[in-house]
Design a protein around this nucleic acid. Structure first.
Lengths: 343, 343
DNA sequence: GAGATAACTTTACACGCGATAAGTTTTTAT
DNA sequence: ATAAAAACTTATCGCGTGTAAAGTTATCTC
């Protein structure tokens, strides 16, 4: 990088001694040109500061190299982690990830899709809000642009879905809890925002029945995505009013569990397995902070490595093979029991 | 949205009965056209589905409407929260925010800036990694594109900096801790990644001296951004080896404190102010989870509302007023003491 | 109602690249 | 060595917008 400023590919082609169409070919795939010309071009790249104008490229290409990545809430470390994983995979495949967060709001989710439309992405990886989502508009979007759903499934939206097998994972932890102590009550929100929560509720009931236990639901009030707050406030109330039917509580997700743990602590209830503990609490998701709670949280680890990898693979296949002839693919990955101190 | 698909502004101008250049003017500023023509255009927008091609726009505009937003690590809920705030402000100003995370790596930080260059943003809001940053390259970038730094300051990089007044906030919490119990030792990483950590170290020493107390540093090993893990592991060791000089520990940040709280719990050391507690722990930042730790974490709340607002204001002023004639602006906002159960 | 002015229209070109066609050179295969 | 194939060249068009100049119409001021 020393010579004069290069303003376009024409100029760069001139200084590299190669014609512009060939240079264009090089930038689209360095291996598509002869080795000797690639060397010439790369030598010129060393000496001059030039990069193709991305707007001109995208205006003329049939498909852009952009892949949208929409998560319901980046403030939630779980989604931050999965987004990060997917970002890396998209980059490695030579595409440009565009990360957007819906911040827990359906309006924001729609406006994110509108932003993406403007960018004309080759494909979109979408974790919908769930119940709150405007699924008609999401379906409309997925109809225009190849879309793969993950985390939360919406009936018939997108070309595929990858998520967790809530029936399997809940059964796993219910069995564990029953085996090691009193059967769990299920702590959840009355009106969950997420379809996974509904699946877990049903899975809990089924597991308990299978084990010959009576299911107990602790359904608490609360709106929005501030799960720790809801878990804390309602947990405090539930404990104070002695509404816990057993000494074991399975929370619908880790964030509720974190709030409940905090509530138990402040209420003077000792949680865990040891001497003097009167409550067991378990969660679901293996939240990044679950191992630092006091006590550390027993939970289910979602296989988001697999969810991310398969989602990205699938959207890439859709993009590169053109249309998806086959029917909508729905895959659930198994969760893994993570035993820690809380239950 | 009913009529045929409109493919470009020419076609849209036709159906709205207005010439294309005037329509173009409308899209760049709806108030720049006569009210009667604006009504015609908006009527057409109701009937037809048209939106200007963003690539064609940006290819021809002198400056894009994009503003880059780079944070060191989106997995850290503190940065997720501040990014979210800024995103909203940028959007409200009619600009398009582009959120990128450096994932704690200097290479990624540079490659983020490269991605941004390709997008030709009007301005960039950058929270650098700090010590690990390649500040020569960052400075080069800030030289090309209007850049405002926040959270972590780098000497002479960018047009302005907004962050927290570590001297003030550390003094605040040191005074509080000294007033209410034993003077604190300072728990930190030996080689912190963040310049704020250095400032806090110095501020702690200064505060202690001012109060006539001898400063005690607990400097632990550990690399990277996995602060909870470092706090937990090293905290466990420090407690086991009885290396704590007093019963009060001030951590360089909340994430270390969360790890240390967990270590104390697992080691059977009760933390807090009440009966039977033998350790006080305080943090800094008011991490979103700080109020749900057990016990809840006494800390300093950074005024990231102000940091975000002023950063966005400043970059907008730079963009809209053209050059920055004045000298580099450096502003520190005061922190607020948040008293909770841990100290 | 006349002139001034603001807002429009038409026309034309620029932006930087992808894509394609037709001709030329280089490389590979036989 | 020769033919075929591959890779290059030049030339030209198209993408959808911004922008400017020159002429026309609507609106405002007195």
């Amino acid at each position: 990088m020393s010579g004069a400023k290069i303003k376009n590919m024409e100029g760069f082609a001139a200084v590299s001694g190669i014609s512009r169409p060939t240079v264009s070919k090089y930038f689209n795939d360095p291996d598509s040109v002869r080795k000797s010309t690639r060397i010439k071009i790369e030598a010129a790249l060393e000496r001059y500061d030039y990069r193709p104008n991305i707007y001109a490229i995208n205006q003329n290409r049939r498909r852009t190299k952009n892949i949208g990545l929409v998560v319901p809430n980046l403030t939630d470390p779980f989604f931050a982690a999965i987004a990060r994983t997917m970002e890396g995979l998209v980059l490695a495949a030579g595409y440009n990830p565009l990360l957007l967060s819906s911040h827990g709001g359906a309006d924001q989710e729609i406006s994110n899709l509108d932003s993406l439309r403007a960018i004309k992405p080759a494909g979109v990886l979408l974790a919908p809000l769930g119940r709150a989502s405007n699924s008609a508009l999401l379906a409309e979007f997925a109809d225009e642009i190849p879309t793969v759903l993950f985390d939360a499934n919406l009936e018939d939206v997108g070309e595929a879905f990858f998520g967790s097998d809530n029936a399997q994972s809940i059964d796993l932890i219910v069995q564990y809890l029953c085996r090691t102590g009193e059967p769990p009550a299920f702590f959840e929100m009355k009106n969950p925002v997420n379809p996974n929560a509904y699946r877990r509720r049903t899975a809990y009931a089924a597991s308990m029945e299978r084990l010959g236990q009576e299911p107990h639901f602790i359904r608490v009030d609360g709106e929005g995505w501030d799960f720790e707050e809801i878990g804390f406030r309602q947990g405090t109330r539930v404990i104070a009013e002695k509404l816990l039917p057993t000494n074991t509580v399975l929370c619908s997700n880790d964030r509720l569990a974190i709030g409940l743990l905090s509530a138990a602590f402040e209420s003077g209830v000792r949680v865990g397995l040891g001497e003097g503990c009167s409550l067991r609490i378990a969660g679901h998701d293996d939240h990044p902070f679950a191992r630092y709670t006091c006590p550390s949280l027993t939970t289910i680890s979602q296989d988001y490595g697999a969810i991310g990898a398969r989602s990205v693979e699938t959207i890439l296949a859709l993009i590169e093979d053109g249309k998806s002839a086959k029917e909508r693919e729905v895959t659930f990955f198994e969760g893994r029991l993570v035993m820690r101190g809380s239950a």
